[in-house]
Design a protein around this nucleic acid. Structure first.
Lengths: 102, 102
DNA sequence: ATTTTACTTGACGGAATTTGTCAAATGTAA
DNA sequence: TTACATTTGACAAATTCCGTCAAGTAAAAT
């Protein structure tokens, strides 16, 4: 299973883009992008959006990959991880149904 | 749907315990416990464990409630929240199957 | 062989967030 | 009023996050 970093690097290389080029588009130092691609730093939401643009990817897909990875790493070491996710699903439903009302 | 804070407060009051008493058991200032119960501060993992002890609750249940609440609040405002949770489930499975191997 | 190019690494500093302490303010019941 | 429980906000210390920069590595080009 590919990490967000791996996905980004693969796409960037397949397009023949340099770290420097992509980084300047994101308006960050290439060192940071290098670290993002190797999962040493986490991209900001804005980074993800811009990355999707320049790498010609669907930004929602990339966001989903990014957020789900974050959550998975947070709880993977819990033996009750899947219970947590199921409970989270219920809560999300509940929260959303409330947002509609207000 | 009850928040962790509400659950804690309800249980504490039903046992007739004071903030001061529970807080000292957790080894934190009562002001912090007050805030935890009103969802102004987040309990640490250790807080949760000790709370379950003194409030005679199942610590796993409380941890699940705590973690799922945290995740739900993180993503509830995303329209793709449920996709994120589904993807997270896959990743957790993948990560766990790798932990077994090593 | 040395120069150029792409990328990596780690030290550093500032901003923002977190975590806890404390005392004053508020509320409430005796 | 007094006493007691809780709340609130100011504050400081500790930690985390975010980015810059320059030196280091590695590989290709000249």
């Amino acid at each position: 299973m590919e990490t967000v970093g791996q996905t980004i690097r693969a796409k960037r290389e397949s397009l023949g883009l340099l770290l420097r080029q992509v980084a300047s588009y994101l308006d960050i130092d290439q060192a940071i992008l290098s670290k993002i691609e190797r999962n040493e730093r986490k991209p900001s939401r804005d980074n993800i959006i811009k990355l999707a643009e320049i790498l010609q990817m669907d930004s929602e897909d990339l966001l989903i990959q990014f957020m789900s990875e974050k959550i998975a790493l947070e709880i993977a070491n819990e033996h009750c991880a899947s219970k947590v996710l199921k409970a989270a699903e219920q809560k999300v439903k509940y929260l959303k149904s409330n947002l509609e009302k207000n």
